[in-house]
């Protein structure tokens, strides 16, 4: 019975729901449309619950890290403090705001979001700029013809996309546009076609129960 719930049932559900959606696409009947609309609502509701699952999983992971005193467990404390601080402030903000939403401008939650989360996350992302500059200096070498081509293209696009490049040589933007619109576009299109075909193959594999890794195992 346990095997049925762990293996057969998920495959059966994937097949039934997947085929229903597939058939509906080719049979736009009012009944199939109604079923389709219901399915969409279900997905939205399930996605909402998935967020709760994600939060619980995060807390569980960090709780285990603290319990076992794993390296860097101090950061798990930070995660807990940050999570519960935002949660408490959010609940209080929601209870005293006009609309009952903590997301409203002027609430403590919104203030913390704008003045803590925004600068912290933006800084983390901006630090990449420094790493990219350092990595480009250390690793971007013209070791072979392919790397040399990549290097030349990168330099031309980097200069063509900024006003200073335009000021240095007026043709940089034209060359950059050509690289993006012709060379890049054709390469990206090839990748997209490959991805599209792979997605069809993967969808069929999942529908027919050949691909089972989404259940958490390869068997």
């Amino acid at each position: 019975m346990a095997t049925f719930f762990r293996k057969q049932l998920p495959i059966l559900l994937a097949f039934v729901f997947g085929m229903t959606m597939l058939i509906r696409y080719y049979v736009p009947h009012p009944i199939s449309e109604q079923i389709y609309n219901e399915f969409i609502k279900w997905v939205i509701i399930i996605a909402g619950f998935a967020a709760i699952l994600g939060i619980l999983s995060l807390l569980h992971y960090h709780w285990n890290k603290i319990k076992r005193r794993q390296p860097g467990y101090g950061f798990s404390f930070v995660t807990y403090i940050a999570f519960f601080t935002m949660l408490v402030v959010g609940l209080i903000s929601g209870s005293i705001s006009e609309t009952g939403s903590p997301l409203e401008a002027g609430t403590g939650f919104h203030w913390m979001y704008i003045n803590l989360m925004v600068p912290m996350q933006s800084t983390m992302f901006a630090i990449l700029g420094f790493f990219v500059a350092s990595a480009a200096f250390r690793a971007f070498r013209a070791r072979n013809p392919e790397a040399t081509l990549l290097l030349i293209a990168a330099i031309l696009v980097m200069l063509g996309r900024v006003p200073l490049g335009e000021a240095i040589w007026g043709s940089f933007p034209t060359i950059s546009d050509w690289i993006l619109n012709v060379l890049n576009m054709s390469g990206q299109r090839g990748i997209l076609l490959g991805v599209g075909l792979s997605q069809i193959a993967m969808a069929l594999r999942i529908l027919f129960g050949i691909e089972r890794t989404y259940m958490g195992g390869g068997d």
């Binding site: 480009a136 971007f140 006003p163 200073l164 490049g165």
Partner: peptide
Amino acid sequence: MDAQSVVHLIVVLAIIFANIAY
């Protein structure tokens, strides 16, 4: 955009000079 311009130029010069050195 001015800041982005200068940083792009710095990265380009870093790549060029690092390759000359290489």
